[in-house]
Design a protein around this nucleic acid. Sequence first.
DNA 1: GACTTTAGTCACAATAAGTGACTAATTCGC
DNA 2: GCGAATTAGTCACTTATTGTGACTAAAGTC
Lengths: 203, 203
Amino acid sequence: MGNELGVLLTRSSSERERWSLPWRPTQGGETLEAASIRVTQDALGEPPIWIEQIGAFGDGKRHPSDAEISVAFVGLVPHETASPRAGYTWFPMGDHPPLTPRQRSMVEMATRTIQGRLDQAPIAFRLLPPTFTLSELQQMYELLLGKRLHKASFRRALQAAWLVEPIDEWRSEGRGRPAQLFRYSPKKRRRPHRGVRFDFLYP
Amino acid sequence: MGNELGVLLTRSSSERERWSLPWRPTQGGETLEAASIRVTQDALGEPPIWIEQIGAFGDGKRHPSDAEISVAFVGLVPHETASPRAGYTWFPMGDHPPLTPRQRSMVEMATRTIQGRLDQAPIAFRLLPPTFTLSELQQMYELLLGKRLHKASFRRALQAAWLVEPIDEWRSEGRGRPAQLFRYSPKKRRRPHRGVRFDFLYP
DNA sequence: GACTTTAGTCACAATAAGTGACTAATTCGC
DNA sequence: GCGAATTAGTCACTTATTGTGACTAAAGTC
């Protein structure tokens, strides 16, 4: 782990020792989002730094809990501070134990949801400590996007977005030139207005 | 109507004559999407040309049907062919009768979902007849996006996307030069690969 | 035929992105 | 101490993409 997204699974004793996504039934008077934050709390002892609903899944077949539909959420926690409680284990997102088809598609949609929101919410910034180097930030984006980015392009885009400001501190990482530390401090700026896009390939 | 999105509401007699989004309870063995297509069929006599789940809503308060959570979908139909059955009425998306807060947020998310998918699925093309003029296509995009587009930019982007091909037919709309007709016929092309974007403004 | 209206295209400017090469500051091996 | 290696940070140049006004084309109106 550390340079790849992970997925937290739990081994359900009731179901022939299969791994599954952590879940819990809703409690009365609670929003779905609050319930899903509670799942994270129970599993890791802390809430996610970001969470979003993936969608509702229901096809007539019932969930073990006897619920007719399952509502999936994706949340993120920084790996360092997130030590799983007993019964929970981290797996690499791309190499986890077999899941039911429904859960597998939830995991796939989770990745897509993260990557689609990355340019709309400061997800990467909240996964990092309050101060960070630009290389750390870039590595976080690369981890989340699952692809390499060009250093100059990344920094140019970051600069144009007025999202970080340098602080008067440097950090030496052993070898190489020390890196300046930055802090997330978004400034007001005009919303980029783009025209149409036709990004779909097939009907 | 005709140059704005509409929302189809139904007047529920049970609930003090309030307008509400069309809904129905799920039937066993049916996916959520199939159920929502059935809602459209019952209301308009035809299925939507595109449909997508908006999300699940649940906050402890129950829906009139006694369901604990509601799963909302957004679907589109061309206005011309979609004549509502008794009890259903079209309203302009931006000026409809008061709804419950939950339903109001569903309507808002519906608009955002449409606009967010417009560049990823040929929604606009399916709302038009098989052959259409480029001005009609542009007007459809403008209607769905809720903003004006520049003619030259629109056509340039369309050309780059290899999505339409001209047919050997022209249509005269009364005054002005006759417009050439086009048909939707997407060609293979390489997926555009973009770098990072930082499009969010606030934490 | 002059004027209006809609279609369709062009050319140029402005922005944004991709990319390699460069300079800077440090550690490591010797 | 000194050069190689390593990481940070920036520059300059190229290429793509987008915004935009102006232009030409083909019809109808009067």
